[in-house]
Design a protein around this nucleic acid. Sequence first.
DNA 1: TGTAACTCGTACTACCATGTATGAGCTTTC
DNA 2: GAAAGCTCATACATGGTAGTACGAGTTACA
Lengths: 192, 192
Amino acid sequence: MTAPSARPRRRADAERSIARIVSAARTLLSADPSATTDDIARAAGVGRMTVYGHFRTRADLVEAALRDAIRAGDETLAAVDLAGDARGAVTRLLASSWEVVAESAALLAAAAEVLPAGRVHELHAEPVRRMTELISSGRDQGVFRADLPVGWLVSVVQYILHGAAEEVRAGRLASEEAADTVTKSVLSVLTG
Amino acid sequence: MTAPSARPRRRADAERSIARIVSAARTLLSADPSATTDDIARAAGVGRMTVYGHFRTRADLVEAALRDAIRAGDETLAAVDLAGDARGAVTRLLASSWEVVAESAALLAAAAEVLPAGRVHELHAEPVRRMTELISSGRDQGVFRADLPVGWLVSVVQYILHGAAEEVRAGRLASEEAADTVTKSVLSVLTG
DNA sequence: TGTAACTCGTACTACCATGTATGAGCTTTC
DNA sequence: GAAAGCTCATACATGGTAGTACGAGTTACA
């Protein structure tokens, strides 16, 4: 969905508009999940009608924004060195994930509201795959526990990450300490 | 707020209506956080106007429902034996918390949407106090870790609990295994 | 340079929920 | 049994957003 590359060609100005709209959507929805289509159009410096020209529904737009955020986050994650000791790899991965997750918490909430159940989860396939692989390999190394399903462990990591973002947002956790706190907590769960 | 016992007297039928409305609100909002005031009135077997007679705004109603759920949950928790070994106490506490949390996840979402920031957290003061005390005592016993703040540990427990509820709801975790899985995960984080 | 693609203002429809107003009729309670 | 309290139907005012329709003007591109 959301205008894939199926269209044979698209004019350069359209391409530009779409990029600006998606970018604005990411920014606004990350600050306030109930930002309206009109707000987003304004922020993108574009008429509301132009938005509807590229995204049939609000849901389409939100999904595009989430896709973009996930893609960007995944690029960051892809740059993390996962070789060697699984414990160190997790630490490095979390140090990067932390920011991505904290930034997009509100956007995620917006998506959960508008998109059909399970869609949000589907869109996370890539980062989930990455984390699953890492945990599996740690388990093979005998470093991580084997008494809980990998899928659950991956989920717990996500929930802790989001929880920390929420605590920081609410001012109950200093943001400088967040990464360290998250890492310690996650490693405890993973090693058992 | 929400009609405390400040009012000198209230007629018996009004008392009855309020009880039915709050109960219906809890049930409906726990299934669908966007249930309308009208839905709730219907389910309570009461006219919509009667609801507005007791709760000025939707937010008031949602808060009353959440209060009631927390109070009921807290009663369950109060029955848990917290004496002796902190590890065992946590295990028992989680076995009970699990159901409470899983049931009210949607209600919580409704409250988060409608109530001012921080209000939901305030309303949880009692269960949070309970958990804080337990973790502190475990720390004094030397059983739980001391390298992370108690407040954070309490939060993590909540996030894991809610996460598990979500996983069960999405069909990614069998509900029979949930309690055990949660317990193992939480104990890992607490012991470090 | 002509045509197709794109932009975008204005205006409008449709929908839906909250909350208010009014008033007739039924219960409690003293 | 009367006053005060409560119920609740109908009707209405409000406010806000999504999405549609139309059409004139602008820009890209071959």
